[in-house]
Design a protein around this nucleic acid. Structure first.
Lengths: 141, 141
DNA sequence: TATTGTTATACTCTATAACTATA
DNA sequence: TATAGTTATAGAGTATAACAATA
């Protein structure tokens, strides 16, 4: 494949990252279309875990302003996937909670995303895949 | 749909990919804000090379519908970064051309993206970085 | 006073369908 | 007829600023 330049490693890494980003975006879009969601909604389900983030925390996770989260969550509340819960510790904060339907959808989205990634990297051995995970996770902020 | 997890490697890889995707999205947003652009516009400059893609080709590269490209390009034409050129071979197709200003901006954006990636993976040795590039590029479609 | 989530505004991105001009 | 790009439309995402409730 591409044992390309060795003085251009950073440029190569940036290019590889840009490509990976486009591939993941395409995967999110594909899953979204299949499930009648938007790409952003799909990504929201991917960052949600069982813990219940506040609107501010979710904004940070999604990398967008908190004002956007209100709208995105609203539409998913209207469709029955999410609910708001006031934090008893601090009544200013609302926590985002998955409904039963929401949890089922979340599982399906994550499984489909994992399938897409699996298909993309099917050519790698188990060891190489573990190595890739390690390298990607290295020196995380 | 697919063979489930052997261990948790696939889940881990998917999680790592989702994280990398969010990080790159954040990087694009940050560069965009710094330069007074949108995230999409920034990504457009990152996929543009010296070759001059048609609107359809650019739509494929960006992973969006061709109808969107018209608007995105329009706004960048209005700001003096891009121009349209009718393909003499087939007068139906328009090719997107970088102006001088556009080429300068493209270089700056790619450099800033590369800087961001470099900073993120500063903890990796040169060898590990080359390995990462190789693993990411493996078995590409 | 500071913070959390919301609303208002204005603009951009998005997909679908219908249109035009070329082929 | 088929294709490339455009326009029209409607909805969703985006950031900024101003606001209400709570701390």
């Amino acid at each position: 494949m591409s044992t390309k330049l060795e003085g251009m490693a950073d440029r190569d890494l940036a290019g590889a990252m840009a490509l990976v980003h486009r591939e993941s975006s395409a995967l999110y879009s594909e899953i979204a279309r299949r499930l009648g969601l938007t790409s952003q909604q799909t990504q929201l389900f991917c960052v949600l875990s069982r813990e219940q983030p506040s609107f501010g925390e979710l904004a940070t996770m999604l990398g967008c302003d908190k004002t956007n989260v209100t709208g995105i969550v609203d539409r998913l509340v209207r469709r029955g996937y999410l609910a708001r819960e006031t934090d008893p510790q601090d009544r200013r904060v609302s926590r985002i909670v998955l409904t039963g339907e929401g949890e089922a959808l979340r599982r399906r989205i994550r499984a489909e995303f994992a399938d897409g990634v699996e298909e993309r990297y099917a050519g790698l051995s188990t060891e190489d895949r573990a190595l890739l995970v390690r390298l990607l996770g290295a020196a995380k902020p």
